[in-house]
Design a protein around this nucleic acid. Structure first.
Length: 424
RNA sequence: GUGGCUGUAGCUCAGUCGGCAGAGCCCCUGGUUGUGGUCCAGGUGGUCGUGGGUUCGAAUCCCAUCAGCCACCCCA
C-alpha cells in the first residue's frame, strides 16, 4: 500500500500490545515515585519559546537547531517542549508554590519534541519520565534523586544500568576553570576538528562530549573540573558520592560528564545501559540552583532528572510477539450473531455480562464460521451464539472454547453461568 | 546538517543473465444447512516507493526524488 497520509518522520504509532507494555511500565513508575514522595504534575506541551531560550540556553543544540517553534497569528512565538524542567519551574512559580514548606517534589511522564534525525531509540516525539525536586540545596537530596532514577529503571527490570556522576562547579569556581580550559584548548587548536572549535568560546565544557579521539586525548591530559572546585562545591560533591555509598548505589565518577543544558551546576549525572551499543544513554539529570531565580522567582535550589522511555524500552528484553494476535485485542466472551436482528439480541446479552468481563459483540453479519474464528483470534474463552432459534426460545448458545462443549442457556441465567465458566 | 543500507501483496520476504509478478502467513469461500483452534480444496489481494532515462522489452540497468532503517553530530 501507498497510503495517502503517513506519520511524520520520527513519530510512532503504538498499538494494542505495545500500549500494554507502556501501561505496565507506567503503573510501576507511578508506584515507585509515590514511594519516594513525588506527586504528579502535568503541564501543557506548548510553551512560550522564550521559556526554553532562557532556561535551556542559547548555544545548546536543543535551542539552536532542535526546537519545534512556530508563530501564532497574533505574532507570539510558541515551542513544543523539548524537555520538562523549564515547564515545571514555570508551573511552580505560576501556581504560587514558592511559599510551600519543605521540598516540592514533582514527577511527570509525557511527550517531548526535538527536531533531530531519527535513529534507533531516538524520535522527534519521544517520552520522558522524570522528577524535579525544588527547594532543597542538600547534596543528600541529589543522592536520593539519583537513587530514585535507578529505582525507576529497576522497577521495569532494566538491569545493568550504570550511574555516572560529576560536579561541574558553580559560578564561584567554574569561570576560572573555563578560562584555564580555553587557554589550554587555544594552545592546542590543531588537535581540534574545525567543526568543534566554535565551542571553545561558547561552552568549552561541551568538548568533553566529543567522541573524537584527538580531542579526548587532549582533554584527558588536562586537569579534571573536580580538581578545580571551590570548597563549597567540593564538599557538596563529596557528600553526594558519600551518600550514594551509604545507599549502596553503585556509581562511577566521570569528570568528562557535562550536561548539554545551561542551567546545570554542581551535581550532574547520567545513567547508561551497559549492554549493547545502540543509544546507551537512558537518563540524565543534575542540580539547577539558579534556574528558579532566573525565571523570576526567589532564589531556590533544585535538582532533577529525566529518563527516556523509548530508550529504556529499547534495552528491555522484549519477547517476540505473534504478529497476528498482536493486532487483535483480547476479550473474555465473544458473541457471534447470525444477522443484525440477532446482533441486537446479542448486544442485550452482552449488556448483562459487561459488569463482569470483556465482551465483544460481532455485528459484521459474517458467517458463524468466520465469527467463531475471530473469537479464537481474540483469545476468548467463551463463545455465545445468537440466532433465530435462540431468540424464539429466550436463550443463547454458550460454548466453552477449550473443551468445545456447548449448550443453550436462558438469558436470565447467563450471567451466573458465565461467571461460573470463567472461574474454572 | 553528513554518511551507509533498504523500499516487491495486509505481514515476513524470494525474484537467476533484462523476457508472463511469486512463496509463506493473514483474509475470504467450500469441504461442515448455524460454530473456532488441526486438515484438505479453491479464491481475493500488486501504480514492484515515486518520476524520468536506456532498451523490442525494466521489479531487474542508469539518473533524480521521496520514505524507512542504521550510524555520525548531539542527546533521552
Amino acid at each position: 500500500m501507498n497510503p495517502k497520509y503517513r506519520r511524520l518522520k520520527g513519530t510512532r504509532d503504538l498499538l494494542l500490545e505495545e500500549v500494554e507494555r507502556w501501561h505496565w511500565c507506567e503503573e510501576r513508575w507511578s508506584e515507585v515515585l509515590a514511594r519516594y514522595g513525588y506527586g504528579e504534575i502535568r503541564t501543557p506541551i506548548i510553551e512560550s519559546t522564550d521559556l526554553f531560550l532562557r532556561s535551556v540556553g542559547a548555544g545548546t543544540d536543543i535551542v539552536d537547531k532542535e526546537m519545534y517553534t512556530f508563530d501564532t497569528k497574533g505574532g507570539e512565538s510558541l515551542t513544543l517542549r523539548p524537555e520538562m524542567t523549564a515547564s515545571v519551574v514555570r508551573a511552580y512559580l505560576e501556581n504560587g508554590l514558592t511559599r510551600q514548606p519543605g521540598t516540592m517534589k514533582f514527577w511527570y511522564l509525557g511527550p517531548m519534541f526535538r527536531h533531530d534525525r531519527p535513529q534507533a531509540g531516538r524520535y522527534r516525539q519521544f517520552h520522558q519520565v522524570g522528577v524535579e525536586a525544588i527547594g532543597s540545596a542538600s547534596p543528600v537530596l541529589d543522592a536520593e534523586v539519583i537513587q530514585t532514577a535507578m529505582a525507576l529503571l529497576e522497577a521495569v527490570d532494566a538491569d545493568g544500568a550504570q550511574v555516572h556522576v560529576n560536579s561541574i562547579g558553580c559560578p564561584e569556581c567554574r569561570p576560572a576553570y573555563l578560562e584555564d580550559l580555553r587557554e589550554y584548548l587555544q594552545a592546542n587548536l590543531a588537535a581540534i576538528p574545525e567543526g568543534m572549535r566554535e565551542r571553545i568560546d561558547v561552552n568549552p565544557l561541551r568538548l568533553f562530549d566529543a567522541k573524537d579521539e584527538g580531542v579526548q586525548a587532549l582533554l584527558a591530559s588536562f586537569k579534571p573540573i573536580t580538581d578545580a572546585l571551590c570548597d563549597a562545591c567540593r564538599e557538596h560533591y563529596s557528600v553526594v558520592t558519600g551518600t550514594l555509598q551509604d545507599l549502596a548505589v553503585p556509581f562511577v565518577e566521570d569528570s568528562a560528564l557535562v550536561r548539554g543544558l545551561d542551567y546545570y551546576g554542581r551535581t550532574t549525572f547520567e545513567i547508561t545501559a551497559r549492554s549493547g551499543r545502540k543509544q546507551s544513554s537512558l537518563a540524565g539529570g543534575g542540580r539547577y540552583d539558579r534556574l528558579v531565580e532566573q525565571c523570576g522567582g526567589p532564589a531556590t535550589p533544585a535538582v532533577g532528572f529525566s529518563i527516556g522511555v523509548e530508550r529504556v524500552l529499547l534495552h528491555l528484553d522484549d519477547e517476540p510477539v505473534d504478529p497476528q494476535r498482536s493486532r487483535q485485542s483480547p476479550v473474555d466472551v465473544y458473541v457471534a450473531c447470525v444477522d443484525d436482528e440477532a446482533a441486537r439480541y446479542g448486544l442485550a446479552a452482552a449488556d448483562r455480562l459487561r459488569g463482569l468481563c470483556r465482551v465483544e459483540v460481532d455485528t459484521t453479519g459474517r458467517s458463524l464460521k468466520a465469527q467463531a474464528k475471530s473469537a479464537n483470534l481474540r483469545r476468548a474463552r467463551l463463545l455465545l451464539v445468537a440466532g433465530a432459534e435462540e431468540m424464539a426460545a429466550g436463550t443463547i448458545q454458550l460454548k466453552t472454547l477449550d473443551t468445545g462443549q456447548q449448550e443453550p442457556v436462558p438469558c436470565k441465567a447467563l450471567l451466573a453461568q458465565v461467571r461460573e465458566e470463567l472461574r474454572g
